[in-house]
C-alpha cells in the first residue's frame, strides 16, 4: 500500500509538545471516510512514517485532522510543515469505538493526556446523534493545566446541558481552579448507570489499567469496556509483526479492543 497525497491546510499548536494538523486530499474532493478510533499512517517526505489516530469529526470528511505529540523524528518533521506541504497518508486502519453499541445506553469516555485525541471523533459522533444516547460523560485527565488539550472546545462542551464534562489535572498551579487528582478518581461520582453503560478509554496503559479497575468497581461489565492499545506499527496491515499484543495485531485487530478480549494480557508485563 502506497501513501496517498494530502496537503497541509493548517498546523495549530495545542500545547507545548502537541499540535493539530489539518490535511486535505489532493485527489479526492470527498476526502477520507473513517470510523471514530481509527488511525492513519502519516508519511513526511524523507523523514519517515508514523501511526497517528484521527482526531477530527467523522461526519465531516473533507478535512482530515490528526493531533500529534512531538516525540520523535517524524512527529517533529510533521510539526515543521507549512501550509501547502505534502503529507502521504495510508489508511484508515484498525477497529473503531463501539458507538453503535452505545445506542440507548449511557456512554462514558475516559481519556488521559494525548488519549483525548482518538476519543474526540467518538464524542463528535455521539453529539451528532445525541438523541440516540442516554447520559454522555467525558472524563479527562491531563498532567498540568497547560497540558490540557482542546481547551476551548472542552469549555464549549462543558457549557452544554446534554453532556457531562469533568477535567482533572495531576498537578495544579495558581491558575487552576478545577479538579486535582488522577482521572480514575472521577469515575465513582460520574453520572452513569453502570449496568447500562458503554465505557471507552484511551491513555497511557497505567492510566487505562486503573480506569478499568475503577469502572469494574463501579459495576460496569467487562464486555462493555473498550480500551485503545498502542504498539509499534510499521505496516499497519498485519504483515510486519511489530504491533503484536499476545496473538493480536494491534493494527488490524485493534487499536480498540473490547476489554474482556484482552483482559488476560492487560496486566501482564512486557507483552
Amino acid at each position: 500500500m502506497t501513501p496517498v497525497p494530502f496537503m497541509v491546510k493548517k498546523v495549530q499548536r495545542d500545547t507545548a509538545d502537541t499540535f493539530t494538523i489539518v490535511l486535505t486530499d489532493v485527489e479526492r474532493v470527498t476526502g477520507m471516510t473513517f470510523a471514530p478510533g481509527q488511525f492513519n499512517m502519516l508519511y513526511v517526505f524523507g523523514a519517515g512514517e508514523i501511526p497517528v489516530s484521527i482526531s477530527g469529526d467523522p461526519t465531516s470528511t473533507k478535512k482530515l485532522i490528526h493531533t500529534v505529540r512531538v516525540v520523535g523524528t517524524v512527529s517533529r518533521a510533521l510539526r515543521r510543515l507549512r501550509v501547502g506541504d505534502f503529507v502521504g497518508v495510508r489508511g484508515p486502519f484498525g477497529t473503531a469505538w463501539p458507538v453503535q453499541k452505545g445506542e440507548s445506553n449511557d456512554v462514558v469516555l475516559v481519556a488521559g493526556g494525548i488519549g483525548l485525541a482518538p476519543i474526540r471523533p467518538a464524542l463528535y459522533y455521539l453529539l451528532a446523534n445525541r438523541k440516540k444516547y442516554g447520559k454522555i460523560t467525558l472524563l479527562y485527565g491531563a498532567r498540568t493545566p497547560s497540558d490540557i488539550l482542546y481547551r476551548t472546545e472542552l469549555e464549549q462542551w462543558r457549557a452544554r446541558f446534554d453532556l457531562e464534562v469533568e477535567v482533572t489535572v495531576d498537578h495544579g498551579d495558581d491558575t487552576w481552579w478545577g479538579n486535582v487528582g488522577v482521572v480514575p478518581t472521577l469515575i465513582p461520582r460520574a453520572p452513569f448507570d453502570p449496568l447500562n453503560t458503554i465505557a471507552m478509554t484511551c491513555g497511557p496503559e497505567v492510566m487505562m489499567r486503573f480506569t478499568v479497575m475503577a469502572l469494574r468497581k463501579r459495576g460496569v461489565n467487562t464486555d462493555d469496556i473498550y480500551v485503545s492499545m498502542e504498539r509499534n506499527m510499521k505496516c499497519a496491515i498485519g504483515l510486519c509483526g511489530h504491533c503484536q499484543f499476545g496473538g493480536k495485531f494491534v493494527c488490524k485487530d485493534g487499536p480498540v479492543f473490547r476489554y474482556d478480549t484482552v483482559a488476560h494480557l492487560f496486566n501482564k508485563r512486557e507483552v
Partner: peptide, 11 residues
C-alpha cells in the same frame, strides 16, 4: 492509590 498514580507522572 490516587496519590501513587499522581506520583507516576504517567503523561
Amino acid at each position: 492509590l490516587a496519590l501513587r498514580l499522581q506520583v507516576l507522572d504517567i503523561y
